Amino acid sequence: MNIPFVPPTRRRPLSHKTVTLAHGGGGSAMRDLIDDVFLAAFSGEGRPAPEDQARFDLAALTAHGDRLAFTTDGFVVDPLFFPGGDIGKLAVCGTVNDLAVGGAKPVALSCAVIIEEGLAVETLRQVAASMAQTAQAAGVAIATGDTKVVARGACDKLFITTTGIGVVRRGLDVGIGKARPGDVVLVNGLLGDHGAAILNARGDLALETAIESDCAPLNGLIDTLIEAAPGIRMMRDATRGGVAAVVNELAEASAVGVRLQELSLPMRAEVMGFCEILGLDPLYLANEGKILAVVPPEEADAVLSALRAHPLGREAAIIGEVTAQRPGRVVMQTRFGGERIVDMLVGDQLPRIC
């Protein structure tokens, strides 16, 4: 990657405590906001040249693979800060993970923000710093972006859109339609923590034990997974709609059945408890640090061992198998020995969780 830099220039600190409409007007106030908040966080000691795009060395990209991966995602989480993360960390992790589950090495992100007039500048600084720290941990650059300010009430505090590019490894061919009967379905850890953390942060629960979001960049874990399973069929991060949404998409796209085992689902007792109280199904709770993977049966043990040796996969578990029966359907064997259909939700159990 080759992003041009020019020597640092003097940055004029913001005098405002809150964001005003002038900070989105394209003049010196906007430049001060971008310099003081975003470039200070994203550029380190240097200041990118003021171009309208980031530029990349194609030779450096093709050194990692032969196909380009490209994804985008918007983030509107409420509240902005929650146990285990914030909207900035969530934005970076979500886009990095969307690239990584396709077998790509994430390279760079863009960051577009829509800011409500009146948002505290310090809040914006905290979000930008969190994004920078998360991007550094994931080994990606935040290379370009955009800033807009809207009047009070036109958005809720802060919305972020991140777009990412990555390079897909040569010879790797994973996809939602690749599963075959006999394959094994795995997850890398405890399910539902993000949805529970957001719900608790809104004050809707009074849990004695705080639950933190599992928000994390998973590209390092996925490198480990791919190395352990060269025949891996597919990977998908189980965000909105949870595991249930992913396995239903898998069953439909691959024209197979999926059979889950309820007793094998790794989940906190606290999460199961509040789901029972509120009438929620934990299979549909959002995750931000969990992937569902499908691997050939002969690679399952190696994958499980490799995942459990990684800090983000210590609670990894096999949760089901791909079958030839009832193509397009997902069935779960319950803890009581019966069966139930796991279908797609029409809407969302919890709005604005990412």
Rank of each mutant, 00 (worst) to 15 (best):
G175I: 01
D66V: 00
A137I: 01
V140Y: 02
G203V: 10
F56A: 14
P311H: 13
A132V: 03
A210P: 08
V346G: 02
G195R: 05
R11T: 15
D86T: 09
I291P: 04
C354M: 11
E252F: 06
G166R: 04
V330N: 07
D183M: 07
Q349E: 12
A141H: 04
V303Q: 00
V303A: 01
M272V: 09
A22L: 10
L292T: 10
L221R: 05
A286I: 10
R55T: 14
V19I: 12
N200I: 00
I114M: 12
L307Q: 09
G313P: 09
P79A: 11
P7G: 03
P230C: 00
D301Q: 15
A104S: 14
L285V: 07
I198G: 01
H23V: 03
R240K: 12
D78E: 15
V331W: 14
L99P: 01
D35P: 03
A59P: 01
A210H: 06
R169A: 11
R47F: 05
P327R: 07
G182T: 10
V6H: 13
V294M: 08
A316W: 04
A135N: 00
G171R: 00
P181I: 05
D146S: 15
A129D: 12
I198P: 06
V294I: 14
E117H: 10
I176K: 02
V6C: 05
T239L: 01
L33P: 09
R170G: 08
D98P: 00
G289D: 08
V174F: 01
L190H: 11
N219C: 14
L80N: 08
V256Y: 02
G145K: 01
G65W: 01
F336T: 14
A112F: 10
A120F: 13
K178M: 10
R240G: 10
T134A: 08
E45T: 12
V107E: 12
A60M: 08
I3M: 13
G118E: 09
A138C: 12
P181H: 09
T62W: 13
D173R: 07
E321H: 10
A54E: 04
D57V: 06
P50T: 07
P4Y: 11
F82A: 07
G175N: 07
V342W: 01
A132I: 09
R55D: 11
V113K: 04
T71R: 14
K148Y: 07
I114L: 15
P296D: 03
A138V: 06
F75N: 15
R352F: 06
A306L: 06
G195N: 06
T9D: 05
A210G: 04
V303I: 03
G145F: 05
E276T: 14
G139P: 07
I160K: 02
T62R: 15
L68R: 04
V187S: 08
G347E: 12
D35R: 11
E288C: 04
G273P: 00
V101E: 09
E252Y: 02
E339I: 03
Y284E: 06
T224N: 12
T123S: 11
G164W: 08
P282M: 07
L90T: 08
G279M: 08
L124H: 10
A244S: 13
C155G: 03
I277A: 15
S264T: 03
R233N: 06
Q349R: 02
D237K: 03
E298Y: 04
I277H: 15
G102K: 14
V37N: 06
Q136P: 00
A229L: 05
A306W: 08
A132E: 05
L14N: 02
L199R: 12
M235E: 04
D214A: 09
